[in-house]
Simulated assay, not measured.
Amino acid sequence: MSAPVSATGRGAVVAGFDGSPQARQAVLWAAREAANRQRELVVVNAIRGAYPELTVNPGAVALPDAVTEEAPRKRAEHELAVVVEECARVAPDTDVRPHVVYGHPTEVLSRVAEEAVLLVVGPVGTTGLTRALLGSVAADLVHTTTTPVVVARDETIDEGQVVVGVDGSDVSASAIDFSFDFAIRHGCDLLAVHAVTDRAMDLATATAQRREIRDHADTVLAATLAGHGERYPDVKVTRTVSFDSPAQALLNQATNAVLLVVGSHGRGAVRRALLGSVSHALVYHAPCSVAVLRRGQEKGERL
């Protein structure tokens, strides 16, 4: 019986790689972020195969003696070597560790990144059924892993503003902390967006009611952002209230964003479907990279 994948990403930035152009961009995004955070980068290529639970030691590929599937392993090692060289170009002072692991990408990345500070993946995979198959890896990770997840759409990391969704919840507060930390490190402005709920919109049948709802939303924004201005005086913050749905409100503001940050309240596919999952919609449709923080990440070290 094989041992589980070891948590090799402790304290590191972990990036998933499957050989696709989208994954390459995500790894380079992760390399720049790891350099900015002064963290190690661990790049993981998970191979779907007959050996899903292999232990991976630092700097090595662990395979049982009986393995005859040499071609997939060698191809994965070669692809990783190429992308590691590219990481050295964009982040020359960052330590990069490549890993090849047999197993389902979602399970492997969740395990390796269990004690990481950040997990970075691309939005789609290598097969034709991208959103239905490998593309679902990104969607599954943002709803299952306890590590903050970034779905990186390109290599850009510090050109544009950071947009964060605010709803007054604990996980939203964690998303705000993440946003301010990212903005100050990358010299970005911050836009905080609060979307009025559909129920509030149904009740807003008159201008006075609409104004009252907007005033309440402004109060939620101010209360949630309180104290951050003092902690991050160099971050320029803009607040906006939208009467669109939360997903649409954030998509509307993300045109010139370098990163869109949200909290996820969902747990599993059924709950995600029932809630209509704002984070799930953004992972698929946002024009920029998306960071998703889940409930349970409110405490711990600075992100």
Results as ranks from 00 to 15, higher is better:
residue 72 P to A: 13
residue 146 T to S: 14
residue 117 V to I: 08
residue 288 C to G: 07
residue 140 D to I: 00
residue 114 E to Y: 11
residue 250 L to M: 12
residue 197 T to S: 15
residue 232 Y to V: 04
residue 64 P to N: 10
residue 288 C to R: 03
residue 71 A to F: 06
residue 126 T to E: 12
residue 96 V to A: 09
residue 124 V to I: 13
residue 148 P to R: 05
residue 210 R to V: 01
residue 241 V to L: 01
residue 40 E to H: 15
residue 107 E to N: 12
residue 167 D to W: 06
residue 21 P to T: 05
residue 140 D to L: 04
residue 242 S to K: 08
residue 103 G to N: 09
residue 282 L to K: 03
residue 102 Y to F: 15
residue 216 H to N: 09
residue 129 L to A: 15
residue 175 A to G: 14
residue 298 E to T: 14
residue 191 L to F: 00
residue 297 Q to Y: 02
residue 67 V to C: 13
residue 158 D to M: 00
residue 32 R to W: 00
residue 175 A to K: 09
residue 16 G to C: 00
residue 91 A to P: 00
residue 168 G to T: 07
residue 283 V to I: 14
residue 154 D to R: 03
residue 194 H to I: 03
residue 127 T to A: 07
residue 268 G to A: 05
residue 78 H to D: 11
residue 141 L to E: 06
residue 63 L to M: 14
residue 179 S to V: 07
residue 133 L to E: 01
residue 268 G to Q: 02
residue 116 A to R: 02
residue 248 Q to T: 14
residue 68 T to H: 14
residue 104 H to W: 07
residue 294 R to P: 09
residue 63 L to N: 02
residue 44 V to T: 02
residue 296 G to Q: 10
residue 198 D to E: 15
residue 289 S to K: 06
residue 83 V to N: 06
residue 123 P to F: 01
residue 87 C to T: 13
residue 8 T to P: 01
residue 204 A to D: 05
residue 193 V to R: 04
residue 285 H to G: 02
residue 112 V to R: 03
residue 95 D to I: 04
residue 143 H to G: 14
residue 8 T to V: 14
residue 18 D to A: 10
residue 210 R to K: 10
residue 13 V to Q: 10
residue 126 T to N: 13
residue 96 V to I: 09
residue 102 Y to N: 14
residue 224 T to C: 05
residue 204 A to V: 03
residue 17 F to C: 00
residue 277 S to N: 08
residue 146 T to Q: 13
residue 126 T to R: 15
residue 188 C to N: 11
residue 245 S to K: 12
residue 193 V to G: 01
residue 107 E to Q: 13
residue 171 V to T: 15
residue 13 V to G: 06
residue 290 V to G: 08
residue 121 V to C: 02
residue 17 F to L: 11
residue 43 V to I: 11
residue 5 V to D: 01
residue 51 Y to N: 10
residue 254 A to C: 10
residue 16 G to R: 15
residue 56 V to N: 04
residue 179 S to L: 07
residue 176 I to F: 07
residue 219 T to N: 11
residue 25 Q to T: 08
residue 114 E to W: 06
residue 52 P to Y: 08
residue 153 R to I: 01
residue 44 V to M: 07
residue 80 L to D: 02
residue 228 H to Y: 15
residue 64 P to L: 15
residue 251 L to E: 12
residue 181 D to W: 11
residue 249 A to F: 08
residue 246 P to W: 07
residue 158 D to S: 15
residue 277 S to G: 15
residue 29 W to V: 01
